[in-house]
Design a protein around this nucleic acid. Structure first.
Lengths: 209, 209
DNA sequence: TGCGAACTTGCAACGAGTGCAAGTTAGCAT
DNA sequence: ATGCTAACTTGCACTCGTTGCAAGTTCGCA
């Protein structure tokens, strides 16, 4: 598929680097949960991970980036989903599968990842800076997906239509999800929520099918 | 309609305040154009408007806010458009009119507003912080419109579906616009841009007609 | 065993944003 | 007019995110 270069961590340096990176993530999640996002400084996180404050920025470009550590991998997964389409797939089918991979990338369920996901969701709702960053990450993913989808169906989708299509789907899901989040009858039934979401986006996107 | 309280600027204080606010906006636009967004400090802007740096934050909550000075008015216009719908309008029709009002609020064309709009578009493309803020403003507008649209058609749209629908529309337009903007790099002619925007929304919204 | 590249770190600095306290000024009732 | 109050302005000191720079340290590899 193409993640061959991530599997073996051969060099010592690389292993150390990964360990430090993970330590930063763990420390950040723990501190954000305990003292809140704004109540936690980058210096706190660095100290908890036992590195110099300055060094933090060699690992993450900003404080917010800690909350979206795997955005690149997710986009890759979506792009792969487009590349590996079946010959008789329609653009909409491919897009739906790609979007599923962005939302929940393949891999064994991991406690720490789940914890991060929940934390992220809460912070997106409550911290403007985090919300802003989330929207930017989403936009980047959207752009990448649109480009690849357009290239996958050059005859049926010009660049513009591909971008509009992807925008509509992402926007619909995003809007529904947002509404769900701030009409706070929150996370009761994960399955029930999924169905409501499915129904809402189905109605909204019917014209595109 | 409901902007009665904005027309007369009776009190001296209020007039002065408006003047200072406008001076800040003018200074900001001029400086951003001349020295770039990141090359301009809040202190620069305050000095150019002849007020103390500290006072700036009594007028705008942040540097980015300077670029979205009328966001509240725009949302109001969209909400009004929903309230003043014709009895036989379909949700989609209403939504279209509301979105048109967000994009270009009614009022006589103003040079300074046009200049600001162009500057904003350029900075959204080039400055991440501005892009993030723009997305947040858009999201807020989306939320307000979805709520009111849902209330206007309580029988046909539940909150969730309304949110998904609005999200799909906005997402489609946004996606198309984005593609258009970063495919071609020109932005000079105001009329050319308008046509381009028209074409993008046409493509984006075709499926709904 | 070295040598160069990559990494770490402290320091100084800049800019956004905020709380506070002291001074001004406009609005308004008398 | 007079004076009281609320609103506004401002400087100061401070926190925090972020960056450039100039050491020093460590690793990979020939």
């Amino acid at each position: 598929m193409r993640y061959a270069e991530h599997m073996p961590s051969p060099t010592l340096r690389e292993r150390k680097r990964n360990r430090t990176r993970q330590a930063l993530l763990d420390a950040a999640v723990e501190l954000f949960e305990r003292k809140g996002y704004d109540g936690t400084t980058v210096a706190d996180i660095a100290e908890a991970a036992d590195i110099g404050t300055r060094t933090f920025f060699g690992y993450f470009g900003s404080k917010e980036e800690l909350l979206f550590p795997d955005s690149a991998r997710r986009v890759d997964a979506a792009v792969d989903a487009i590349a590996n389409r079946a010959p008789d797939d329609r653009p909409v089918d491919v897009l739906l599968r790609a979007l599923r991979d962005v939302a929940a990338p393949a891999g064994q369920p991991d406690d720490m990842i789940d914890r991060l996901a929940r934390l992220r969701l809460r912070l997106i709702r409550t911290v403007p800076a985090v919300r802003g960053r989330a929207l930017q990450v989403q936009l980047d993913a959207q752009r990448a997906i649109a480009t690849h989808l357009g290239q996958a169906y050059p005859d049926e989708l010009d660049e513009l239509t591909a971008a509009a299509l992807v925008g509509a789907f992402v926007g619909a899901i995003n809007g529904a999800l947002l509404a769900l989040l701030d009409s706070d009858d929150d996370d009761a039934d994960p399955e029930h929520v999924r169905q409501r979401l499915q129904r809402a986006t189905d109605v909204a996107l019917r014209p595109w099918r």
